[in-house]
Design a protein around this nucleic acid. Structure first.
Length: 97
DNA sequence: CGGGTGACTTCCC
DNA sequence: GGGGAAGCCACCC
């Protein structure tokens, strides 16, 4: 299942972002958004974890990591409105089932 | 197997 | 939009 999540996250193109819930759904783990976060932490550094945000484009990460995630996203061209990502422009929609 | 935990989500005030 | 509460799922002890 770590693999499933990894695959889903890897599908997110640069400059786009997705929510934990969306990733979970794409990985076939709908309702297990927390597990996505769990997988992201475990594989930290091996996948574009910074492209995964909370519902509404909010960065749920705390501390330095949160700030870093924001910087990385902006570096990829993702725009922020206040403390959230403009989901209306950068939300990546996984292949509809 | 029971209990606690968390980078979640959604509903309600 | 912020704060609180409940539901959810996998992991660890």
């Amino acid at each position: 299942m770590f693999t499933a999540i990894h695959k889903a996250v890897a599908k997110i193109p640069k400059g786009k972002v997705a929510t934990y819930g969306a990733v979970a759904r794409a990985a076939g783990l709908e309702g297990a958004a927390r597990q996505v976060a769990w997988a992201l932490r475990g594989a930290n550094g091996r996948l574009p974890w910074h492209r995964v945000l909370g519902a509404g484009g909010k960065i749920l990460l705390t501390g330095e990591s949160g700030m870093e995630q924001r910087i990385r996203l902006e570096a990829e061209g993702v725009e922020f409105r206040g403390g959230r990502v403009r989901m209306d422009r950068h939300e990546f929609k996984f292949r509809a089932r």
